[in-house]
Design a protein around this nucleic acid. Structure first.
Lengths: 207, 207
DNA sequence: TGCTGTTTTGACCAACTGGTCAAGAACACG
DNA sequence: CGTGTTCTTGACCAGTTGGTCAAAACAGCA
């Protein structure tokens, strides 16, 4: 019972390798999906041998689940930050911008999420019907309050949130298509910010 | 040289089985992506044996390419239909509605497309930079004309199209998430039509 | 009915997959 | 240093994968 270091379970080397593995796995899973990804690809990407991967994680699935769990938290943070006491339009536009920043800064996470949902969310359906649903319900109530107060135009809060998700994540998930259509010499995310600000401003404006 | 039936290369049975294979493959590829899908899954889904699949198609990749090629045509049709001579707002709303109908009627095709793009569009990048880009350029010119004529509000035509794609395809690709958030007793696509009609009406309205 | 071309399949293969294991290499620390 | 612990790896395994092939089953037609 002496010196149980439960709160310091990781050595330097463990932290470094665990991180390298998760980073490599994010890269591979986000492109290939769970089934399409192989431990060899992840190991190579991480600069480790395959048995070494399995020294740090018990299975391929464990790596995937770890990524998905981490993702769920950071994914919902921008919505959590939306403040019921703030200016409605600014809060919603701010949320949209934070989501757009995430598409710019964490496109792999966005693709990982998209891949999981496309496959029917086998490892995430619980979180979707739990955490996510609860948070959306909470924020929907806030939005309905703003509508009732005449601060923003009347609309279904669910579909308002869907539209923010769809449009911001599109620039991460469909990046290849966006760039193919625009051709070189464009900064899609920068252009999107202006466009989406206008779009949501018009949508939200009362009357 | 007698009786070269070049224009009737398929017997009844060939047509039936080829179709069953493509249908099964669409189901599997659209969920698992190219790498994640297996010939066994496709064969089982199609009610055929694996060697029998390979009697009709030379390889897994050939099935995938066939699906992608067919998809590209039907995928672009709704945009092609947009008429430069029609009423601008009605044309754009009509395009949005046709895309939404495709999300309702062909969700597997939508997911197949999404999967391909997520993976970096390895087998489609040519079509994106060719056909798609050309069509978008053509329609962008039309939209710019409508803007110049004061028929709709000023905005970047590219991002307008992106926003239509993002919001309509979201209801097919993220169907699981949408339903998890809304809970039972909803018809997401029906609700979306009303929401998106309002959204795009406000966005397009001049002034 | 028998014949010819089409369709179907069981058996098979080499490459790949996720995962194991025992033994060795590197490390921390007294 | 020595020694116990942590870390790494080559060799290996059973199951899966895309794909082949020869032979069998079948369809259509004379």
């Amino acid at each position: 019972m002496t010196s149980m270091k439960i709160n310091t379970p990781k050595t330097r080397i463990q932290r470094k390798n665990t991180q390298a593995i998760l980073d490599a796995a994010l890269e591979v899973f986000s492109r290939q999906g769970f089934r399409g990804a192989t431990l060899d690809q992840i190991a190579t990407e991480a600069g480790l041998s395959k048995p070494n991967l399995l020294y740090y994680f018990p299975s391929k699935e464990a790596i995937h689940v770890t990524l998905l769990t981490q993702l769920m938290t950071t994914w919902l943070d921008p919505l959590r930050e939306m403040d019921a006491a703030g200016d409605p339009t600014e809060e919603l536009l701010g949320y949209m911008r934070r989501k757009l920043e995430m598409s710019r800064d964490f496109p792999r996470e966005s693709r990982l999420f998209a891949n999981e949902i496309l496959q029917g969310a086998p490892r995430m359906i619980g979180a979707l019907e739990g955490e996510l649903r609860d948070l959306v319900e909470e924020k929907s109530t806030v939005i309905r309050g703003w509508i009732a107060a005449g601060k923003i135009a009347a609309m279904d809060p669910h579909h308002l949130l869907f539209s923010i998700w769809a449009m911001t994540q599109h620039y991460a998930d469909f990046d290849v298509q966006v760039r193919a259509v625009l051709g070189p010499g464009h900064d899609p995310l920068a252009e999107a910010e202006g466009f989406l600000t206008t779009l949501f401003t018009k949508l939200l404006r009362p009357e």
